[in-house]
Amino acid sequence: MDSGVTLAFDVMGGDAGPEEVVRGAAALTLEKSDVSVVLVGDGAAIDASLGKVRHQAERISVHHAPDWVRPGEKPGPALEERPSASILVAAKLVAGGEAHALVSAGNTGAGVLACARHFQLLPGVRRAALAAVYPTHRLHGEKQDPFSLILDVGATVGVTAEDLVGFAVMGSAYSRIISRNPSPRVALLSNGTEPQKGPPEVVAAHQLLRALPGIQFVGNVEGVDIPRGTADVVVCDGFVGNVSLKMLEGISETVMELARYAYKEKVLWRAGLAMLSSGIKRLKDLTDWEQYGGAPVLGFDRLFIKAHGRSRAHAISNAGKVAARAVRHDLAGVIQAGLKA
């Protein structure tokens, strides 16, 4: 009796509240006939939401967890205080084999910490990495994905060369499976393209990656290459990755603010923006993070997909699809094989 893929959704953490997570998971059960979901969180809130949306009850179960970690809370103390927090309970269910992967739109630190407590690091992985996707000029892989992957963006500060090599292997495997990119271009983020540029661990990682089979290492890239999409996978430590990602988000928001300002400022500019509106909308759709759904935490024996905190149902559903695809293609196994090589 094959049960397909089962995903545990931490229902409580997202900014939009349990209803959006429940709606997204419910939609997934209608769309994907081999996906079942465990909704972890306040049972009454889940049932109130579930009762209002179309769903496939045979593919949904609820696991009551009375507590949850708020978005701004410090993860360590919050999880200590609340062992029944939904993210901890969901991670435990995944670790215990009741689900194959975890999806959460909640507190990122709490999610990573919950995984660290209940999941095992893959042999050869010293540190897990939080990956993120970002829109690029260039399209990637069989899906013509407008997103590249950058990791680590915050799980680890202070890495060794071996950690960076591990991130490269994990990111490459993820890109192969999720973006259907058979040979993703992997690069190290540095302050110059020359091999000797950058801090010692980056220089050392460059040498190791050059010699590593099974990965298309294209050398170092600079910050300017990130939005260009020069590489499909950009590898860096968590500090640099987080700063880079936040800057990309900040630029995007500033551009939108400028457009709003221009719209209000002059009738002629408004007319120009109106003429460009369909193109802008297409661009927005193309680079809409909701399409991608979520970003993975890589390195554990079980998968955790971190959905954006602002995720609504559509993004949650897409995060579930990403998780299901990763499970079906045995992402952990592929990463492990890559690390052995």
Binding site: M1, S36, R59, S61
Partner: peptide
Amino acid sequence: NLLMLTNSFQDLVR
């Protein structure tokens, strides 16, 4: 399968 049967059961309980 067993998962679908037990989920169906739990749905009614809920």
